[in-house]
Write a protein that binds this DNA or RNA. Sequence first.
DNA 1: CGATAATTTGATGTGGCTCAACCTACGTGG
DNA 2: CCACGTAGGTTGAGCCACATCAAATTATCG
Lengths: 238, 238
Amino acid sequence: MILEKFLMGRRRADLSSDDLECLENAAEEPKIIEARTTFISAGTPVSRSTYLIEGFICRYMDDKSGGRQLVGIHVPGDFVDLHAYPLGYLDHDLATLTQCRVAMVPHENLDKILKERASLSKHLWFSTLLDAAQHRDWIFALGRLTAAARIARLMCEMDAKLRAVGLSDNGHFSLPITQPDLGEACGITAVHANRMLRDLRLNKLMTFRGGDVAIHNYDRLTKLAEFDPTYLYLDEMS
Amino acid sequence: MILEKFLMGRRRADLSSDDLECLENAAEEPKIIEARTTFISAGTPVSRSTYLIEGFICRYMDDKSGGRQLVGIHVPGDFVDLHAYPLGYLDHDLATLTQCRVAMVPHENLDKILKERASLSKHLWFSTLLDAAQHRDWIFALGRLTAAARIARLMCEMDAKLRAVGLSDNGHFSLPITQPDLGEACGITAVHANRMLRDLRLNKLMTFRGGDVAIHNYDRLTKLAEFDPTYLYLDEMS
DNA sequence: CGATAATTTGATGTGGCTCAACCTACGTGG
DNA sequence: CCACGTAGGTTGAGCCACATCAAATTATCG
């Protein structure tokens, strides 16, 4: 089986074994991409989409003065650039955070699925809209929350996503990013990210050290972050 | 013809007359929704999606202290909550800004399209991903730009979107929102929005008054906003 | 083991918020 | 047709969250 956690992991159960097999056949042999590698650039035509089996991938956009804004962090089980299938190219860059194992899915195979398998197509469509929902959540965080709350919210989101694919052990998980990365995700400087992490640690809400997260007080953390996992659509698909 | 500008207006040319007719038949008779009405709430199951024929609609999320964050503004030709078809319900609220004329499309009809018309399905999928791309753009603006640049960027985006459906006359267009709305869109207070609008006006970049926008200097405005319309995918679909 | 990047802390500056007042536009009812 | 209520628009004063600049310390890695 190539795609261990296909289609957002948790939702695999929703797929018929028939559809699952079809997806398996649509994917090429997995390959490795090294850490910190930009493997898709904005505006470049894309003819195969990337399913992430193992590792962490981020989306980002550059500003004019050399800064970056992360617009998403992907975990194993995410079909990270399925967007590019209807869109043809992406409006942003994709880069690995860690070494990653990925399976590429040629768009011709997706054409075939779209023609022949309405139910599977709807699942794929669904999975791209999860990204949109997570984008909205980031907009909310950046627009309304303080720096500490943005960090808290990112951690709540990562915990929920990783938990769904079995990679968070009760609030303890690996998030292999640096403090500069965290700043770029939350729209703050690395220096301020560092100070806010200290505050969160001293207040016994959570600890982030060397790419490892430990959530100490889930209630207070989610309250600070105004976190409501509705937008992750973790319940069953209609 | 019910849906004058169906599917992002500008892209209508991409649809076969066959597909266009199919879409027309999928829609119910247009109806009116009054201004400033929340017509879809987060978490409520949705069985029909809303195509916007005339008027302006916004998406928003509430915070705990009574504030709101706008996460999108929709213009005629947008299939505003097509997301709800694969998702089943929305993670945010939808409200009219002005009185709107809309056509509802029952999800059963979309099921039929998904089964029988792969090409049209891909177009619909595409249109939902445009929203995701615009979300990413807002994330960038909120994370990296100053208040004035965020306003500038919003105006550039609205101009580009309205131009595509013939509702912007060379940088002059109607954007029926208030300054408090603008603040909620840009993650700033209404007071600060007012001051930044004054600066933009005094610097002869643009004017916003009573819901009417006039862009005076497109070059300097786009430069301030770091605006690149790639993310709107205004070119042809692959 | 030296180079490079990440983490941490301090001092100081500033963009945007808060609170407050006043003005203008508009809809509603008398 | 005017009085009045309500919401938006405008401007000022003071404050705070976060940025900037700087420097020291600690991983990380060829």
